[in-house]
Design a binder for these strands. Structure first.
Length: 574
RNA sequence: GCGGCGGUCGUCUAGCCCGGUCUAGGACGCUGGCCUCCCAAGCCAGUGGUCGCGGGUUCGAAUCCCGCCCGCCGCACCA
């Protein structure tokens, strides 16, 4: 009944509704607006908070995971260590004459010059100047190429050398504070740490109100796991189906997803980590609970060149939004031990965890030993420092000689090295936890939720069929007419209900108009006080979705509403 | 960032090509009142726009010209 025929422009309709009724709108409107920033109104805040609550319920509370909150601004050192300073940037070519700026690699490609993926700024600058590439605006051909970080840069305190960055993801806070979080969690493993907060990315071109933002809210969960252990929550979900577009499929241009059971996806190696698979299932259910049907969801495997620098495998959870196409609402990444390892190295602080193994294990270990240091020094000369760095890191690796051969170009047989076998009894396993990260963009979730709730009834009546448990306003109360003491009685009901629900009271216009007004903002239930209420203390309870009405005793109203507004059983969301 | 198109009450829009008749018109919404025993009904009275911003041309600019901002579509980008 809720029609889908206006699918094509539903995005515009949703944005218009959001603005008109106060969910959200472009920020700084009175100054002409600034792209990439938006403001939330009352309904928007309430909707957002309900989505956050649902997320916490599913992702955090259900597993006994922890919540933290860390700063939005971090020092240079943190983002240097995390790899963002080096990777989170674009090459920009600046015209030496007019000062205009372009993407250097695009400029080259547009001029028909081949440029490799990892070309340095010097190489690109050389190519631009060497080939006489002209500035599209002023025609000159003197270029300077620099890297432009996509992070917002700022200063911390009055000292200009103390640069800081606005975090591009909340995740780093959880890695940086890992040591203390781990201790306060009494060294629990697996350990899930969640953070809801803002992230900032200085996007080249923000788009589409809530889709590409420069400042936005994220809900991120970092699950620190023992890489040798699977995910115990997966039990019972092995046959749950996921719609995958794998890296290989994407490469072949196959965009129709493969529907495959979790167990099969894991055993065929399509998903490389059990925890990742588990969160994909959870993610699918989460979006279903927000009103996005399963056939409007898919998981898109990111090829290496599109993945973040820290990721071994990433699936974007995409949902179809009518009028927009497939939109990424979450990134589910297997970050391995990249971040903890990087911060450990950069800070010099030990971020390993150690766990007592079930049984003491006798392990045969092999390691390389230097027989004669003086001789080594003589042979290597000034390569010694580099050798020792590699040696410290890889002395346990059987293939160390090959590594040295390829890195230093030295014939290993000439070095005074010997392989030493050792038998050790180990009670404790020390490792960097491997991290699985489901990360959600809150604004996109809101947009997806609103889009799939949006419908038109009887030609022109907008009905926002939000799932009751995320509706910003949960119940509306109306006096049927504005005399005979009905408004007074209705206000009593409002006072009572306000203790437990977000309530809206309205006595303006006809009853039909009032129902229409609340349908439009997704209020799932309306209570109407009429003359009979004065006689027998019953009211009508009207449902937004089918317009049905039932008569409810005022004494039972709150419990009845509580029931209607509760979360459905998770199993029913498959 | 590039190319194309666009920006007029809260919303949708008329007017722009062919400057003056526009102190910018309408519909819906919103506010107050009347009426009303259940789905945007009716009546009365209100409310509301320096026409995205800035500059120029002109006696006169929503209308013509330039710059900027914002939006949409395509390309690119997208941790």
């Amino acid at each position: 009944m809720l029609s889908g025929h206006l699918e094509a422009n539903i995005y515009e309709k949703v944005v218009e509704l959001a603005r008109r009724r106060g969910f959200f709108w472009t920020a700084y409107e009175i100054y002409g607006g600034v792209g990439g920033f938006y403001a939330l109104g009352d309904l928007g805040v309430k909707l957002r908070d309900r989505i956050v609550e649902l997320w916490k319920q599913l992702f955090v509370k259900g597993h006994g995971f922890l919540l933290v909150d860390t700063p939005s601004i971090g020092p240079h050192s943190v983002f240097k260590a995390s790899g963002h300073v080096d990777n989170f940037k674009d090459p920009m070519a600046e015209c030496g004459v007019c000062g205009r700026k372009y993407r250097a690699d695009h400029l080259l490609r547009d001029s028909g010059i081949r440029v490799s993926e990892g070309a340095s700024t010097e190489e690109m600058e050389g190519l631009l100047n060497g080939n006489g590439v002209r500035c599209p605006e002023c025609g000159s051909s003197r270029w300077r190429v620099r890297m432009f970080p996509t992070m917002f840069e700022t200063r911390i305190g009055p000292y200009s050398e103390s640069t800081g960055f606005l975090r591009p993801e909340t995740a780093q806070g959880m890695f940086v504070e890992f040591r203390r979080i781990y201790e306060t969690a009494r060294e629990r493993m697996p350990l899930g740490v969640a953070q809801i907060g803002r992230g900032f990315r200085n996007e080249i071109s923000p788009r589409q109100t809530m889709v590409r933002l420069r400042e936005f809210n994220m809900m991120e969960l970092e699950v620190f796991t023992n890489p040798e252990e699977g995910c115990r929550y997966l039990a019972g979900l092995e046959n749950e189906e996921l719609a995958l577009v794998t890296e290989d499929m994407a490469k072949r241009g196959e965009h129709a997803p493969l529907t495959i059971g979790v167990h099969d996806a894991l055993s065929q190696g399509l998903i490389k980590n059990e925890w990742l698979a588990y969160f994909m299932v959870l993610s699918k259910r989460f979006l279903r609970l927000l009103g996005v049907h399963h056939d409007k969801q898919r998981f898109w495997g990111k090829p290496p060149e599109e993945r973040a620098h820290y990721s071994q495998q990433t699936f974007d959870h995409e949902v179809l939004i009518p009028g927009l196409g497939w939109v990424e609402v979450a990134g589910l990444a297997y970050r391995t031990d990249y971040d903890l390892r990087a911060h450990s190295k950069a800070s010099g602080k030990d971020l390993h965890v150690s766990m007592r193994t079930a049984e003491p294990k006798t392990e045969k270990m092999m390691r390389w030993r230097i027989k004669d240091m003086m001789e080594l020094k003589e042979i290597l000369g000034d390569k010694l420092k580099e050798f020792m760095e590699l040696f410290e890191e890889h002395k346990d690796d059987e293939r160390f000689p090959e590594l040295i051969g390829s890195r230093l170009g030295i014939d290993v047989d000439e070095l005074p090295l010997e392989a030493e076998e050792k038998v050790e009894t180990v009670h404790v396993k020390r490792f960097y936890p491997h991290v699985i990260e489901p990360s959600y963009g809150l604004e996109r979730l809101m947009l997806a939720t609103l889009s799939w709730a949006y419908g038109i009834r009887e030609g022109n009546r907008i009905v926002l069929s939000l799932p009751p448990y995320v509706a910003p306003i949960q119940v509306a109360v109306f006096p049927l007419i504005t005399r005979d003491g009905l408004p007074e009685k209705a206000k009593e009901v409002v006072r009572k209900l306000s203790e437990r629900f977000d309530v809206l009271y309205d006595e303006g216009g006809s009853i039909g108009r009032r129902y229409a007004r609340v349908d439009e903002i997704g209020v799932p239930y309306a209570v109407t006080v009429d003359h009979r209420t004065l006689e027998d203390n019953t009211v009508t309870l009207r449902s937004r979705d089918d317009w049905s009405q039932i008569r409810v005793e005022l004494g039972e109203l709150e419990d009845e509403l509580e029931e209607l507004l509760s979360l459905p059983n998770l199993e029913t969301t498959r």
